[in-house]
């Protein structure tokens, strides 16, 4: 077990290096730089440009810039945003809880709805319920997420007025945020109605961001369930006269969940990609929106740092999923 984990960890290191290189190259290859943005319609004088280039370290050859950057990264220094001169760490952690909170609620929503729907659909294969769940799941899976978000806003916020349009909490509430999770902080604040407001702001983004994972989980659970139910031991259990409830919940479910866990783990990447669009549309002050804005401003340190941290999060989650999976299903350790 330990050797498996260590082997996986060893693979992470080159990946991490690769990510720094890719992140660095990507942002530096995009034409136009932070100074062009600064100048706007007016433009920047050559003297000021030269000074700024030197100050931002952009006057050095690219490979030197990269070495300096990697060196700093390994000392835990991600640099300073060219926009507001704040450390990238600080900028990232000011926004990360918002993305994390939304991602967690979205994946929970997807699991809570998708898992039972998938199980029932699998057990009642071919029923009307099965068909409608699978139809809905496939539709959700095929949905252009930005369009979906706009439709939801238009319908639930604008037409019906049920949910707020955007943001994390009504601006009338203002309290300390020790955790950065609005749901927890609003409870801790003790302000009346704050929690409710936080919840109502979360609903639409959660549904939009959770739609694709929900569809994937429901479909995966169903097919995994069908496969397991057709296995010999289940048939044996049934033949022995065990109650269908017991067969499904105790025997089949445990085995059916193995691939589902992997799928949930893999959704983390999808969530972060979805978060870019979802956050942009719902004015959610998270990492996705920050990345888009930083690319638009050519804020190199922020983009590099952000990509690096997001990638690290994905790598860590994948590692955890792999390890979990190998615990549940020991065969995998020897297979790979």
């Amino acid at each position: 077990m330990l050797s498996f984990v260590l082997r996986r960890l060893a693979l992470v290191i080159p990946t991490f290096f690769g990510v720094t290189l890719v992140a660095f190259l990507l942002v530096h290859l995009i034409p136009g730089d932070a100074i062009d943005v600064l100048g706007g319609e007016r433009g920047v004088s050559p003297e000021l440009r030269a000074r700024l280039m030197a100050e931002l370290g952009l006057d050095k050859p690219l490979w030197q810039q990269y070495l300096i950057y990697v060196g700093n990264v390994f000392q835990g220094d991600l640099g300073i945003s060219t926009l507001n001169r704040k450390p990238v760490w600080e900028e990232f952690f000011a926004r990360f809880p918002a993305t994390l909170e939304l991602s967690i609620t979205a994946i929970l929503f997807a699991i809570i709805v998708g898992l039972p729907a998938g199980i029932i659909a699998g057990v009642r294969r071919g029923s009307a319920f099965d068909h409608s769940v699978m139809g809905a799941a496939l539709t959700g899976y095929s949905m252009p997420i930005f369009w979906w978000a706009l439709l939801m806003i238009f319908f639930f916020s604008v037409t019906l007025g049920w949910t707020p349009v955007s943001g994390r909490i009504s601006v009338i509430y203002f309290f300390d945020q020790p955790t950065g999770f609005m749901l927890i902080d609003s409870l801790l604040s003790g302000e009346k109605g704050a929690f409710r407001s936080a919840v109502s702001h979360l609903i639409l983004p959660t549904i939009v961001l959770g739609t694709i994972p929900l569809a994937v989980i429901a479909r995966m659970t169903r097919s995994s369930m069908i496969e397991v139910l057709s296995d010999d031991y289940i048939r044996t259990a049934r033949a022995k006269g065990l109650s269908p409830f017991l067969v499904v919940n105790v025997h089949a479910l445990r085995n059916a969940l193995i691939p589902v866990i992997t799928v949930i783990g893999l959704q983390v990447g999808t969530l972060l990609a979805g978060a870019i669009l979802t956050e942009t549309i719902f004015s959610w002050p998270g990492i996705g929106r920050w990345m888009i804005e930083s690319i638009g401003r050519r804020d190199y340190p922020s983009v590099q740092g952000g990509i690096l941290l997001i990638a690290s999060a994905v790598i860590i989650v994948n590692l955890v999923v792999d390890v979990l999976y190998s615990i549940i299903n020991p065969r995998i350790r020897y297979a790979s």
Partner: peptide, 24 residues
Amino acid sequence: MRTVDIMMALPSLLLALAVVAILG
């Protein structure tokens, strides 16, 4: 496969966005 790992670690939309920004 390490390159694949790197690409899988990056959110695909962000990657696509950056590539398009580079190419125009």
